[in-house]
Design a protein around this nucleic acid. Structure first.
Lengths: 170, 170
DNA sequence: GATTGTGTTCAAAAAGAATTGAACAAACCG
DNA sequence: CGGTTTGTTCAATTCTTTTTGAACACAATC
């Protein structure tokens, strides 16, 4: 789990105090969502940059490895949190953040939450069959009630999450 | 590189197949929320138990350490996901799950999300001041816009999350 | 007031997740 | 082509978090 904030000692000369602190906010944010720190760093950097940035800019400014930056950007793109900026000539690609909350939340739900709800639903249906093999009548009934509750939770999630997204977007 | 001969088997004799699988579902669930596996195990076990269970039951059935079980139960109680069952005489305390989705979600929001939104909001207010020291007029304006967006996101979160909770509870 | 049953705490160990770095691919250019 | 620039991949390493286990506290029991 997570406990208090841990003190940062990055001392990165190329990041302004402001940038550093905004990044901290995003790092905190992505950690709450159970995602790696580097995603928060990269998104935070882009969020506070007037110009779109290249992979190399990210590597330099955040002083993380090329591999890490590459994977981080990929993930952010899958989430729809970062987009390519230009596709100009054969030049290196530049990235900029998507700053539409509704879409950010939508991406998160689609990529991180949905899959689990889907697979969970299927699994519980299986389990209901298993539960029916229980001999003890009382216990069987109890199992059914609980499993159905679990199933109901998941259905509800699948209904409510898109609604949440909509609420955030207005 | 493994040669599938002697796969490590959990092989916990005291958990039925059904229990094990339901626990898996909950473990998956808590991991999505960025919480330790043991919370899912404990909650899952309680969720599928007709009788309330003691700390010792949990330790035995899940074969995890007393320390882990103790801390896990504490966290689940703070989240409001688990309650004491009886408080009968000077006997060992028994635990049972709260199975009300609305309250579960409420506890999660209160314990895991709210604190970050609160502290984040404060921090961003600080940062707006810092941003105003920027000399470049254009850049200063850009910073203000972005920081205000960030602030707006947090406000919206604080409004919408309780609403989400309400929606889930109906 | 010693003993036993319950539960908590926390330093150390183990498990697990993220990051690095070097090798590799692909596209461009002269 | 051969060289350069840009980006990806993945095994090895590093870092973080979780779990363990033994010591401790408390209270009930004999």
């Amino acid at each position: 789990m997570k406990t208090g904030v841990n003190e940062e000692i990055p001392l990165n000369r190329s990041l302004s105090e402001l940038e550093q602190q905004v990044i901290d906010v995003f790092v905190d944010g992505v950690k709450v969502l159970g995602m790696p720190k580097s995603l928060g760093e990269i998104y935070g950097l882009l969020f506070l940059s007037q110009q779109p940035l290249s992979l190399d800019d990210v590597v330099t400014k955040l002083s993380l490895s090329k591999g890490s930056a590459s994977q981080g950007i990929r993930m952010l793109r899958e989430l729809g949190a970062v987009k390519e900026a230009n596709a100009n000539g054969g030049r290196r690609t530049l990235y900029q953040p998507d700053v539409d909350l509704k879409r950010l939340v939508g991406g998160f739900i689609r990529e991180q939450v949905r899959p689990h709800l889907e697979s969970g639903k299927g699994k519980v249906n299986e389990l209901l069959k298993v539960a029916n093999q229980e001999d003890d009548k009382e216990l069987k009934k109890f199992y059914r009630v609980r499993l159905q509750k679990l199933e109901a939770w998941m259905s509800r999630g699948r209904i409510v999450l898109p609604l949440l997204q909509k609420l955030l977007g207005e």
